[in-house]
Amino acid sequence: MKTLKRGLLILSVASLLLTGCGNGSDVSKRTKNSTKSVEDVLNEGMNSSDEAVKVESPSSVNEIVKDDTQDEIVLTAADLYEEDPVEEELPVATPAPGVDVDLTVLSSTMVYSEVYNIVSLPEEYIGKVIKMEGIASTYIDEETGAIYYACIIQDATACCAQGIEYILSEDETLPYPEDGEIVTVIGVFDTYQEGEYTYCTLKDAKLVA
């Protein structure tokens, strides 16, 4: 009897805990961890770092976000987080004026996690001005000849990486950086469709000297 009473008490507390945590919204499938694809990119980049001009395998940069979208799903924040993305403002770490998401002021652990979230939940960040610092990487699609530029960041143990592609604005006077250079990029986050996949990019980007 005593055990039963204790059980009922715990059950009620557990129910309270569980109901307090959710809003009942549907939980959709989450896209796959994007680290692998970016790791692919980074690995390939490291392997050929000695080359003066880097020529990457055809879709390496595309793979930065390919794994995020290979299930052909682009998720909304509401699918994954209980907060309503319209009502809740994104956290703003913005000493720099005009920047919505300043990744340069976050710790390395936070930067990695935040970039992971950006590429996992791209719709939540569309139109936001993002400032990030990372390792420059260049890739050339041998089939189309298209050149892609990405800013890659690593986690605290430096074994996992995340990255975002960027396209410099026409006004930008600085050239695209060499592979392996540490760069700071400010750009407007956007997504675009190429084939069956959705890709993330920082458009109208500027390099911070």
Binding site: C21, R30, T109, M110, Y112, S113, Y116, D155, A156
Partner: peptide, 13 residues
């Protein structure tokens, strides 16, 4: 690494 900071909502539940 940072696995705990990249949990999905399903994993949290």
């Amino acid at each position: 690494s940072t696995s705990i900071l990249t949990l999905s909502k399903v994993e949290v539940y």
